[in-house]
Design a protein around this nucleic acid. Structure first.
Length: 878
RNA sequence: GCGGGCGUGGUGGAACGGUAGACACGCUGGCCUUAGGAGCCAGUGGGCGCAAGCCCGUGUGGGUUCAAAUCCCGCCGCCCGCACCA
């Protein structure tokens, strides 16, 4: 009796994991001539072959990569989801006959390990090693099909040696540079941050309010790549919202740079504007408090002290306070004027904190008639507001009712009044210049830019929001920046043959506003590689996003100690065919990695422009609708689920709960349901495996793709045919779903197939039953590898992962009779059986004869018939 | 404010413009058990009806269509990203 059978993942899973580890099943070599994994191990499949399987030497490559984890503590549910998705794709691609590269590594440098070290004194290397060990254990217990021979950690000298090498390449190319700048400083983490790491004026990592400091720092010239980072988005298969986020972050605006001259100081101030058409409406000029010239300008004027005070206040104010939109506009006159190049007007200069140094040139022409912010400022300080564009369709005031036309005059006068300003729409130029007045502003924009260009007072210009990437960090646990400072030679790059510059051990990890590395005197004091004299090492380390900007390249040739990679290895695997990770990296990591790829390509090290051909972003896993966190106490640990229900259950559940790109709420009941399903699959298979086979001749040699019945055997019918049809339907459905990441419906289809197996258990032939269950295991294998390997082995004594992906028999997908939907006036009224080959006329007749259709026709006249063969007939009656 | 996305049973979610609610959870009833937190079977959007069946139903109001959860327009609500970006 079946009561004795128990599905025991705790027994099944380690057994298969051991076999995969012993046989190194998921390792691939860089030798393109090596065979594929699927299709080479077993006998040739009886049925149709999956594309490519078995055609040794011609197997296409597939590089499937999940974002590498930051090893801290234990993997969480988000990791489980990410790797469950990636592993499903990796398995699917293998079974389609691809050579699949599916590696794993650790983004091991970073602040949490260092902060832990500050608290406990445990070296970050040790705590990181412990976390990595825990991640390794769990990944193995999940049965993820990783090529462990390529494993890497970004904190290993044999890895970061090449991170440093890349840094030097960028340095030599002028893409890495040092500059003093107003930078974002996190007072809690005691380090500078990249623009991308500041959210709402707070440190992305720890949440502390960010301060501005004037510091000399290392930058990478990502802005050189703004245009290509933007335009190449068109060539990659990424989710639209991620592309949009990157576009917004790059923030391209077209406009003009216009020069305003300050005669008093004999200085030209260029400003960037997207609205050169409003130049004639510029009535004042504003500079950012951080602008280096502000103090000089105010010097000697009556406003000098006031300006000083204002700047001090603005600079000490947090970004948050300063950035609030509700805040009234403030500012101080500089006591100087500049010349508006289009009309020679002298307009007053101001300093105001609504102008940002980091955007454009840090100074603006203010057009209060046509810009909300300038308008608010002008109103606050009593500055002139001039209309230079008149909209043809400016909105009428709410109380203006143009019903009878008599109000037109009122509307007109209202429209002309200052109350309708600022007007930010389009219209005709007024009060500007005889050459431009009356012109539509879009036209005038181009004309004015041309004029500026001719007069050498400006030119068309494109501005980006993107800033250069600040990469130096005043912290210990990161990749040392490979340069030294020599009194004689200045900044000297460490020669490549001296790499890696190894991170020294230190006693005290506490940050003190400079890198803790500065305390390692033996290490800091060194000799200049150029002149041999005394020199000091750079004590800042690199942002960890540098480490993760090239790791996908290293996997292709992870064991290479002679070079970062062999170009032949990259040629074999890159680019990544499918990248998988969370949306939280939509901007940071994904932009930086694209930048690295383009820069390295320009330097001749790569021959492709985009690292990740396709991207899939998985949704978050929540519990009770909230993000899991220790403080909320709603953390679901993968380890405990795996222990209780098995890895197959955990992986299947996380994919079954909903579309994987959407957020999903964890439910323990849902897990139970999936566990029951896998148990049913296993039990039914175990039971079927023991049943007597049908008489010889009806049993297929292989339950693989094609037909079950040997040639010459009678055609299947009844329950056999029904089950076969369902099986081929499932093959078709799951195959299509895999390609669109619809894993939830793929699993549901296998559930349907299994339900059908249960239902027809006693009616269908054992051979058919076996076939159906084998296919169920085969289709489910990418999600639940252990139990499916077990089931397939029980039924066939074969390794499912060596079988090509099943193919549906088109004949089995067709039905000779189907249910025709009969509608009257678009409403479902009846269903009748219709032959598959029936023509429109026949279908119409069938529909007309359907009893419930007749009831609804009831003498009415049929005015139109819509016939959709294979689907429905709709009768329109009157 | 700008950009992107989403609104479907008690719940998670299905549905090339063509049978709304697949699959699963939960719930109800039954079978089997000394027992059930095991397994199996049946039912389960709302309303009316003994039934056949009828009516209503995908946030909301319009529109296109023989036919709309799906396409278009206007609202309402929620989520995400950016945000004084000149």
């Amino acid at each position: 009796m079946s009561d004795e059978r128990r599905y025991e993942p705790q027994e099944i899973e380690p057994r298969w994991q051991q076999l995969w580890a012993d046989e190194r099943t998921w390792e691939v070599t860089n030798d393109a001539r090596a065979g594929t994994q699927a299709g080479t191990g077993g006998a040739p499949a009886a049925g149709a072959e999956a594309g490519g399987a078995g055609s040794v030497g011609k197997a296409p490559k597939s590089y499937v990569l999940e974002m590498l984890p930051y090893p801290s503590g234990e993997p969480h549910i988000g990791h489980l989801k990410c790797y469950a998705v990636g592993d499903a794709i990796a398995h699917f691609h293998r079974r389609l006959g691809h050579r699949v590269l599916h590696p794993m590594g650790y983004d091991a440098f970073g602040l949490p390990a260092e902060n832990h070290a500050i608290k406990t004194g445990v070296h970050p290397r040790e705590s990181t090693a412990a976390s990595i060990a825990s991640f390794q254990r769990q990944f193995r217990s999940w049965g993820i099909s990783i090529d462990w021979s390529r494993e890497l950690g970004t904190h290993e000298p044999r890895y970061y040696r090449w991170t440093q090498w890349i840094f030097l390449q960028l340095l030599h190319a002028g893409l890495a540079y040092r500059k003093e700048a107003a930078v974002k400083w996190c007072p809690n983490d005691q380090t500078v941050l990249a623009n991308e790491q500041v959210l709402d004026g707070h440190c992305e990592r720890c949440g502390a309010a960010v301060e501005v400091r004037q510091l000399e720092q290392w930058f990478l010239r990502i802005t050189d790549y703004a245009e290509r980072l933007l335009s190449d988005l068109a060539d990659i298969d990424w989710p639209e919202h991620v592309k949009t986020m990157q576009r917004n972050w790059i923030g391209r605006s077209e406009g003009a740079e216009v020069t305003f001259r300050c005669d008093a100081l004999d200085v030209d101030y260029p400003v960037f504007t997207t609205r050169p058409d409003t130049l004639f409406g510029a009535t004042f000029f504003v500079m950012a408090p951080e602008h280096p010239d502000v103090l000089r300008l105010a010097q000697g004027t009556t406003y000098e002290q006031e300006v000083k005070d204002y700047i001090n206040r603005a600079l000490t104010e947090s970004n948050e306070e300063r950035g609030s939109l509700e805040k009234a506009k403030t500012g101080v006159p500089l006591g100087r004027t500049v010349t508006n190049p289009v009309n020679g007007e002298q307009i007053p200069m101001y300093v105001a904190d609504y102008v940002l140094l980091e955007y454009g040139t840090g100074a603006i022409m203010a057009v209060p008639g046509h810009d909300e912010r300038d308008h608010a400022f002008a109103r606050a300080y009593g500055l002139p507001i001039r209309r230079v564009i008149e909209g043809a369709s400016e909105p009428a005031p709410p109380d203006f009712a143009p019903v009878d036309g008599s109000g037109a005059q009122d509307g007109e006068s209202w429209e002309r009044s200052e109350q309708s300003l600022p007007y930010t729409g389009d219209g005709s130029l007024v009060n500007s210049h005889p050459d431009f007045d009356g012109m539509h502003n879009r036209e005038a924009l181009g004309a004015i830019v041309q004029w500026l260009d001719r007069e050498a007072k400006g030119h068309a210009s494109v501005n980006y929001r993107l800033r250069d990437w600040l990469v130096s960090r005043q912290r210990y646990w990161g990749c040392p920046i490979p340069v030294v400072y020599c009194d004689e030679c200045g900044m000297v790059p460490v020669p490549e043959e001296q790499l890696p510059v190894e991170l020294p051990d230190i006693e005290d990890y506490s940050p003190r506003g400079r890198s803790p590395l500065a305390a390692a005197e033996d290490w800091v004091n060194t000799k200049c590689p150029a002149c041999g004299g005394d020199a000091l090492r750079e004590t800042d380390t690199m942002d960890t996003f540098v480490d993760s900007s090239w790791y996908y390249l290293r996997y292709c040739d992870a064991g290479n100690d002679e070079a970062a990679w062999d170009p032949a290895a990259l040629a074999q695997w890159m680019p990544v065919d499918q990248y998988i990770g969370g949306v939280e990296h939509a901007i940071l990591h994904l932009m930086y990695a694209r930048f690295f790829t383009k820069a390295l390509a320009d330097l001749g090290h790569l021959d492709f422009q985009e690292p990740f051909r396709a991207l899939f972003t998985q949704g978050m896993v929540t519990k009770d609708g909230a993000k899991m966190s220790k403080s909320k106490g709603n953390v679901v640990s993968p380890a405990s689920i795996v222990q209780r229900s098995g890895a197959d259950t955990a992986r299947c559940y996380i994919l079954f709960v909903g579309p994987p790109d959407q957020d999903a709420d964890w439910s323990d009941e849902g897990v139970e349901g999936v566990h029951r399903f896998l148990g049913r699959l296993w039990r039914l298979a175990a039971e079927t495996a023991e049943r007597e086979d049908a008489p010889a001749g009806q049993t297929p040699a292989q339950p693989a793709a094609g037909g079950v019945y040997a040639d010459g055997a009678p055609a299947p019918q009844g329950a056999d045919l029904e089950l076969l049809r369902k099986t081929h339907w499932a093959i078709d459905k799951v195959s299509a779903d895999m390609r669109r990441f619809a894993f939830n419906t793929a699993i549901a289809a296998v559930m349907e197939l299994l339900n059908e197996c249960s239902r027809l258990r006693d009616e269908a032939a054992v051979s058919v039953q076996r076939f159906a269950l084998s296919i169920a295991a085969s289709l489910l294998f990418p999600f639940a590898p252990h139990v499916c390997a077990e089931v397939y082995d029980l039924l066939n004594g074969q390794r499912v992962w060596e079988q090509p992906w099943p193919q549906a028999d088109p004949a089995m997908l067709e039905r000779d009779v189907y249910e025709l939907v009969c509608q009257v006036n678009g409403k479902l009224r009846d269903r009748v059986k219709a032959p598959a080959d029936a023509g429109p006329e026949e279908l119409k007749e069938l529909c007309l004869m359907a009893p419930n259709v007749q009831a609804h026709l009831d003498g009415k006249e049929v005015v139109k018939e819509i016939v959709v063969p294979g689907k429905l007939v709709n009768l329109v009656v009157r």
